[in-house]
Amino acid sequence: MLRYIYARDLNTQADLAHSMFVDRADQFQTRLGWEVHVDSRGEERDQYDALNPLYVIWEMPDGRHGGSMRFLPTTGPVMVNDVFDNLTGGNPICSPLIWECTRFCLSREAGGNVAGALTLAGLEIMRNLSIPHFAGVFDRRMVRIYRSLGFSPEIIKSAGVGRDRISLGLWEYDAQAYQRVAQRAQITPEMSQLWFDRSFGSATREAPMRLTA
């Protein structure tokens, strides 16, 4: 199932959190060879994890991490502005209506639809929380993956060549994309909404607020 968890609440989910940071080390250091910091517990964390970001995590049936990504609003410190000014052309992206998505990660044990489920979660955030845009930096191999998942970004700018080529992309909410991604991920919109509501609370159920009637 999909979970939406702020960093400060991760301490209540110790196994889930630990397995996420370990899987990130596996993906970004071991498999992709990025220069990331891995601590003595085998966890990959950076300074943005300390800014209380919102994580979207696919929790596997055994309670461990199957895939995840991380969000922060571009009104505060974000990687795209701090690290990739060659991609923003010196124009920092800054708006409460644009969140940055980073550390898109899949566990080696993740099932085939986990990437799709995470993409659907992104659209669920956009749809429910009125956030029309995400920004993110990704390498070339992701372009095809995003396309196959059914939700491609607009590429703002690219830099580098070959394997090292990276791009800054902007995703825009689109109701058709939501349906398409749900279908490809084989998750019904109802189930996805239910998972979202379990994390954020529901806006539609008979709320105690209306007991006053």
């Binding site: 702020y6 400060r8 209380n52 919102l54 922060l72 609003p73 955030i125 929380l129 009125s130 956030i131 509501d197 954020f200 609370g201 529901s202 806006a203 539609t204 709320a207 105690p208 607020m209 007991l211």
Partner: peptide, 20 residues
């Protein structure tokens, strides 16, 4: 508090006695 997403009050937990 310690969140950054906009909140519709209906999504909040009003179920405890002090909250009610």
């Amino acid at each position: 508090y310690q969140r950054f997403h906009p909140v519709d009050w209906r999504r909040l937990d009003w179920s405890t006695k002090p909250a009610r």
